[in-house]
Amino acid sequence: MTEKKTVIELEKASIFQQNTLILSDINLVINNAEFVYLIGYTGSGKTTLLKLLYAELNLEQGNAKIAGFDLNKITDKEIPFLRRKLGIVFQDFQLLTDRSAYENLYFVLKATAWKNKAEMDTRINEVLELVGLGTKSFKMPFELSGGEQQRLVIARALLNHPEVILADEPTGNLDPTTSDEIMKLLHDISKLGTTILMATHDYRLIQKFEGRILKCEKGRIEEQSKFHKI
């Protein structure tokens, strides 16, 4: 069994977006290998919380730690190194359309200071196998289906062995069957020890797939049980 370790910790944190208070007094602890849903209405602060966690927004009040980085003290130079410990999956987080699946992943490894070509090849094949695209490395993004493209985005997020995957509506553009496949994949990844924090509107998925639920509402984040009326 994986040893329990805190990967995300927020204490009395308040998050502002352009001087507007979005979330306040957040206290939150998320451990490794946890699968956590972040739910709430549009504008309730789900994406804002994710942005804080990948250091796109500054922490104005309180304390926050993620993957060993203190968001109060993090410098601009340290942000890329934080992001290498995170995997970021967006609904529209763009793939490079002029490069194959393999080249998209190769580019990320190069961007994150991998040097050894053999090690890069091995890692790319590993993540492609993991997301079920082992035979499609040569395909261009436009030759892949929506679900396969999202798998490729997840493969990209996995490249640097992230401690946490932050997923913002990763199934937002997909049909129910493909969404289920992506959810299964994310759950499999979570079982391997990676924490998944996923913002979603899709309550059908929450009912169907296990996970801890955090609800953003009225500027707060509250824990919810699956059986609570969402």
């Binding site: 970021i88 987080f93 994150t112 990209r156």
Partner: peptide, 11 residues
């Protein structure tokens, strides 16, 4: 995209 995958500014 490069920033979000952890590329340094110089890269």
């Amino acid at each position: 995209s490069m920033q979000l995958v952890g590329a340094t500014h110089w890269f």
